[in-house]
Amino acid sequence: MKIQILGTGCAKCQKLAKQAEDAAQELNLDYELVKITDIKEITSFGVMMTPALAIDGQVKVSGKVPSIDELKRILAA
């Protein structure tokens, strides 16, 4: 699966990227983490608040950094 982190590089975006990575590793997922920092590309996802997380193009989280447990639920769904 492709985990996409949308954000222009603020501290929260980096935290989200790291937490998502940890969550995916704990679940032993076969994943690829992509950081999307271009503002045009970010908005094309339709999010209005960064940071956001999308899985294979589907936005799952926007405007907050969920806990690792919550991220695990999102990634496992």
Binding site: C10, T43, V47, M48, M49, T50, G63
Partner: peptide
């Protein structure tokens, strides 16, 4: 509405 200036651009476009 929750807002921070770092999200001003996506919000502007969304609107």
């Amino acid at each position: 509405t929750p807002f921070c200036s770092c999200s001003a651009v996506p919000l502007f476009i969304g609107f």
